[in-house]
Design a protein around this nucleic acid. Structure first.
Lengths: 300, 300
DNA sequence: TATTTGCATAATTTAAAATTATGGATACTT
DNA sequence: AAGTATCCATAATTTTAAATTATGCAAATA
């Protein structure tokens, strides 16, 4: 075969891994095999594709050109299998979802439950990660669809609004604010504040919007996890700000009370995203309908 | 390989030819080989790709899906060769150069200009930095080639001489030395000296060579920049020592006069350097020829 | 009905691609 | 600074995959 197809596959993995040895592991081969194939390919194209920089390897310009195209090619080949399976009406299939924290833990589970009731043959995986990681997983084709706290930044991804959310102040039932529905921002300053760890999407929004109103939180206690924030507020440690989505149960049970911040817009939107050049399988499309509209909408 | 790449190629040709026997001829194979590969591929996709209609074969629906994509795929693969060849023919690509001050500002620009005239499609970046930084950039593979005021110290770098330079004493036209061509070193001592900032290559050479002759400069004024030194000398602030390369224009315009130091060797050499284990692209090689010989030399 | 043409299958050969073994060079470690 | 580990390159060998030849069957051609 004069098109060096197998070599292209091996090159692609090696370029992705930036390491021949790791590529060998991924491909269930040994390192010398990788070296040889790359060498063959370099012979074919008449130029080096990798610089061997000591222990590291790095793509040359020619390598970069090649890699850009092989990514598309092997994406297409993967999609082929899906498309043909669907043609045959194979109802099973696999749906790989990635989501950021709040969505993955509080929003998706009930949706997944309903979806599973209707399509019990579909295997589902859900990977909860930070926004950036979800984007990367989409680009690496490791997940079919992602749910993010912000529109995907990468141009290779298609993004759309998925769900509107609102951040609310939460206080324990023992708190004097528990009988109110609104609180003006400046009153927050004197409160001990239980807040999510730096780096979370929620945290960023809170700080940005409060800063707009000239309010900076002083007495803050940080927790790494939403559940911890809830528990802390419940037990009277202070007041918190969390997504409405994550406290519905607690509020319903009368464990905490939520209030809005007067005159501060704490709404935000979650987004879905997928690779522009990815063929969305029926399963994926259907799930997206479920997620956005609660039920399957139109078929297209 | 679990992607059946070779089979895809064979399928593609067979689908194009609508005939296994002819596909065999095209691919320099025999018909049974084609049959087997198609069969393997059908096993992989779990469905027939061709209907065997008596003496004829025709694509099934699944086959059509496959054929549509393989057409794109093999198109891309062909395109790849073209794109990489273009890179080789220097109809694209980029060249990342690092250089120390004097070379980057006074020597390279005209060379870059000529190079660009011949290869307008090559993108060029030039990063001017201190010697050490240039070396580090080379090692980090951030630049393709570097030009330095001293041979690269790191064993992983290949170094070669690039350009000979000479430091000369410069005086304003109003100075009594302006009518001389040589000046003995000891006369320098009584002069106010305008000199480049500590740390520059030029400064180090001046001090080392003068120290050999037992001369230490006393009345010195430091400037951070070569241009400042020139301006200072022009306006009669004192005498200076600078590279011949940087004052050709000023001397030609009659703004300053340059003299040699009697009996002191103030010549120095500039060097190019690149990573020993880096593949020098054609663009890089050609540029190096331009830099060293003024024009492209031999092709190898 | 005989003949040609095209694909399928099986046995065998051939060629490709894998592995093991080894060496050199660079980075990390103590 | 010396020793160790890591990573890639190369060569010799083994294994596997893919080619071939040989043959059969079915449909189109005459």
């Amino acid at each position: 075969m004069d098109t060096y197809l197998n070599q292209l596959k091996i090159f692609h993995v090696a370029a992705k891994e930036k390491c021949f040895t790791r590529a060998a592991t991924v491909l269930f081969l040994t390192q010398p095999g990788i070296s040889k194939h790359i060498k063959d390919l370099e012979g074919h194209y008449g130029t080096r594709l990798f610089d061997r920089l000591g222990k590291k390897v790095a793509l040359t310009q020619a390598g970069e050109i090649l890699f850009a195209k092989t990514a598309t090619i092997f994406n297409m080949i993967e999609q082929l299998k899906v498309e043909i399976d669907e043609l045959q009406g194979m109802k099973g299939g696999f749906l790989k979802i990635g989501a950021s924290m709040t969505i993955g833990v509080y929003v998706l589970p009930p949706i997944l439950g309903r979806f599973r009731d209707t399509y019990p043959q579909v295997d589902i995986s859900l990977d909860v990660a930070v926004n950036r990681q979800v984007e990367e997983n989409l680009l690496a084709n490791a997940i079919d669809i992602g749910f993010l706290g912000a529109p995907a930044a990468d141009a290779r991804l298609v993004t759309g609004p998925f769900l509107n959310d609102e951040l609310v102040v939460i206080v324990p039932m023992s708190h004097e604010w528990a009988r109110r529905d609104f609180v003006p921002p400046h009153e927050l300053i004197n409160q001990t504040f239980v807040i999510a760890k730096e780096g979370s999407g929620t945290r960023r929004i809170i700080e940005a919007r409060l800063a707009d109103r000239g309010v900076t939180l002083k007495k803050t206690i940080e927790f790494g996890h939403t559940e911890a924030v809830k528990k802390a507020v419940e037990s009277g440690l202070g007041v918190g700000i969390l997504s409405k989505l994550v406290i519905v149960r607690e509020e319903h049970l009368g464990l905490i009370k939520s209030l809005r911040l007067e005159g501060v817009d704490l709404t935000r939107t979650f987004f879905f995203a997928y690779r522009k050049d990815k063929y969305l399988s029926r399963v994926t499309k259907t799930f997206l309908q479920y997620a956005i509209y609660g039920k399957a909408g139109s078929d297209q």
